[in-house]
Each structure stands twice: as C-alpha cells, then as structure tokens.
C-alpha cells in the first residue's frame, strides 16, 4: 500500500485517479459509440470533468495561493468552453450532414426546421414530409372541436406548398440532386456512405443558392 504523508495527499490522489478514470471513460465512449452526437456526449461531459478533477488534484496537492489561482482559472475556463465548443461542433456536424446512427429513434431538429423554414436540404426530404404529415394529423385529432379551423389551416398549408413558382424550381433542383445521388452511388458502390454525404453536401449548397435567389426575388 502506498504511504501518504498527509490527508491532503490522499484527497489529491483520490481526485487524480477519479479524473483519470473519467477521462478513460470518455475515451472508451469516443471509441465505441456509434455516431457523432453520442461520441460528443461522451467526450464533452466526462472528458472536461476528468480534466477539471486532475487540475483540482494539483491544487489540493500544492495548496499555495498562486497554484490554486491558476488551477481555478483553468477549471473555470474548461467548464466554460467545453459546452460552447461542443455546441459549435455539433451544429456544424449536423448541418454538414453527418449521418446519424441507424438506430436513432427521433431527429427532433429535422422536424423543427422543416416546420419553420420549409426546407433545410439535409438530404432526407421524404422522411421530413411524412413526419410533418403525422404531426398535422395529430394536431387535427387534438383539435377535433375546431374541425373547420383545422381544415382551413390544411388548405392554407396546401396553398403555401403549391403557391410560389420559385419553389417548383427548387423541387426540380432537388429531384436533379437525387438523380445525381443515385448515379454516383451506382458508379462507385464501394463507399456508399461517403458518396451520399458528398452529394448531400453539393445538394446543400445548391439549395442554399436557390433559397438565396428566392430571398432576393
């Protein structure tokens, strides 16, 4: 058994080992979990807490004012920046079109963005339309009392879907993109994931261009 010279050393040893084990846990999670958000879930929380605990161990081991001040500054900085960095990377990854795990139950952000801003060009338009249809059906079930109102809203939504001429061009654009996707996948079947991602990315930029044109018009 190791011999400690003081209680502070024991506490420092415990915090150090706990922090190392937490970072080990984060590393296992990053290596084993299936997709980007779950990996970030492992690395952000366990990783930053582990680093903070090891630095706290330094402060406990050497209880002098300069050391404690620097350790506190480092811990505060870590705990402030880890969520920001995780948010920014997760946002970028989602919009770039990193594929989610095939066992994903619900992609709430896709529904949200399709509901508010028509299209986001994330490469799963068909699923989005089905999901939004389900949502409308649920709403009509809930609002059975005001059936006429729900009918009006449905007709309005139909009008808003068919109304603008620019959106038709957008749809044709999307169809072209999907054709391109199929072609590329047929050409290079060795790495279907990457191919679909690449075509999604090009579709992304094309649709962004179209939406900017619509905004200018």
């Amino acid at each position: 058994m190791p011999e400690f010279q003081s209680i502070g050393e024991m506490v420092a040893a415990g915090t150090l080992l706990l922090g190392s084990l937490l970072m080990f846990l984060a590393a296992v999670g990053v290596l084993r979990l299936p997709d980007l958000p779950t990996r970030m879930h492992a690395s952000t929380k366990a990783g930053s807490l582990g680093a903070a605990l090891t630095i706290i161990a330094v402060a406990v081991f050497m209880p002098e004012i300069p050391v404690i001040a620097r350790a506190a500054a480092t811990v505060v900085f870590l705990l402030l920046t880890a969520p920001v960095a995780a948010h920014v990377i997760g946002r970028a990854g989602y919009f770039v079109g990193v594929p989610l795990w095939e066992g994903t139950v619900k992609d709430a952000l896709a529904e949200q963005y399709d509901f508010k801003t028509q299209k986001l060009g994330s490469g799963r338009e068909g699923e989005d339309e089905e999901e939004s249809g389900e949502v409308e059906g649920e709403e009509s079930e809930v609002l059975e009392v005001s059936e006429s109102e729900s009918e009006v809203s449905e007709s309005e939504s139909e009008v808003s879907e068919s109304e603008p001429v620019a959106e038709d061009s957008e749809d044709s654009e999307a169809e072209e993109v999907s054709e391109v996707e199929e072609d590329s996948e047929a050409d290079e079947g060795s790495e279907p994931e990457r191919d679909s991602e690449g075509s999604e990315g090009s579709g992304d930029s094309k649709k962004k261009d179209v939406t900017s044109e619509v905004a200018e018009a």
Partner: peptide, 19 residues
C-alpha cells in the same frame, strides 16, 4: 469516419493532455 468525428477526438486529446 467524418471530419467532425476527428475534431471531437482532437478536443478529447487536448483534454487528456491537460490531465
């Protein structure tokens, strides 16, 4: 397999180096 995954790994590497 994607660039964001690598960025996450880099961030965790930095945290481990801090430890």
């Amino acid at each position: 397999p994607t660039l964001p995954d690598r960025v996450v790994a880099l961030e965790l590497i930095a945290a481990i180096v801090v430890g």
